[in-house]
């Protein structure tokens, strides 16, 4: 049995993806099998999942949803789709984490920030010139909708505190700390450790400047609790926040969230 564009198709030995395409979608010129693009001559195996796409063609909403995740390993999507992830702070880290998680098809995102989009944010944050002056929560929700309209987005438009965090994020599967202020970073980790047992947590410290890529590490602090960054590079006069290195840290965070949601509570491959 094969799954072709989400329809069940009978399997027979030696069948190529092009032959399946002739029957199901004759104009297809992109073939994706089990999350990986293949040539038309690719010979299918029993149980394979295929996506047949015509380059540049616009698609129905249902197809769109499936195609968004066609490049993902089968089986992963269902678990991500059920997840609720909170993001605290929507600057260089938070806006980038949010878009990565949205592209990967996390089911629900809760976005928290009190600030507005400013020109000085655009060097590293995922907003646009025509969004200057908008609330970051609203602007980011809009941007997510333009990439993946199937993510449910809830927004919290207020300044968070150590006392508010446990109540606001009691029901999330994972919480990502993306604050700029080190005082809030410490406060939020305390809130998680004291009141949010069982919530996966990924925080960050040290990603300013253009230091080495490889100094950005993901450390496991406690079960389900991770810290990303080089632990040293503070944003300060003479060492600004730059898109690439903040982006490295943000994507460490986003990948760690995905790992935790998929049952990988480790720093390294084997531990």
């Amino acid at each position: 049995m094969l799954l072709v564009n989400n329809e069940i198709v009978e399997y027979c030995e030696g069948l190529t993806v092009a032959e399946v395409g002739k029957r199901t979608k004759p104009d297809a010129d992109i073939f994706i099998v089990n999350g990986y693009p293949v040539a038309a001559s690719f010979v299918l195996g029993d149980g394979d999942q295929c996506w047949l796409v015509k380059r540049g063609e616009s698609v129905s909403a249902d197809e769109m949803r499936n195609l968004l995740y066609a490049r993902h390993t089968p089986g992963v999507q269902a678990r991500l789709q059920d997840a609720v992830v909170g993001i605290m702070g929507l600057g260089g880290l938070g806006s980038t984490v949010a878009l990565a998680l949205a592209r990967m098809g996390i089911g629900s995102l809760i976005l928290a920030d009190f600030d507005l989009v400013e020109p000085s944010n655009l060097n590293r944050q995922q907003y646009f010139v025509d969004q200057i002056g908008l609330k970051k929560t609203e602007a980011l929700k809009d941007n997510i909708g333009r990439i993946n309209p199937y993510v449910r987005v809830e927004i919290i438009d207020q300044r968070l505190t150590e006392d508010l965090i446990p109540a606001l994020f009691a029901d999330v599967d994972a919480l990502v700390e993306c604050f700029d202020d080190p005082v809030m970073k410490a406060a939020a980790l305390r809130a998680r450790l004291q009141h949010l047992e069982g919530v996966f947590y990924v925080c960050a410290s040290g990603m300013a400047g253009y230091g080495s890529n490889n100094e950005i590490k993901t450390r496991r602090l406690y079960p389900g609790v991770f810290l990303v960054g080089d632990q040293e590079s503070a944003a300060e006069p003479g060492q600004g926040l730059m898109a690439a290195r903040v982006g490295i840290a943000a994507h460490h965070q986003a990948n760690q969230v995905v790992r935790l949601l998929l049952g990988e509570d480790t720093e390294n491959k084997q531990q």
Binding site: D180, P182, L189, G206, A235
Partner: peptide, 8 residues
């Protein structure tokens, strides 16, 4: 001690 530096 888990120490944080600013930036995000």
């Amino acid at each position: 001690l888990i120490r944080f530096v600013g930036g995000g």
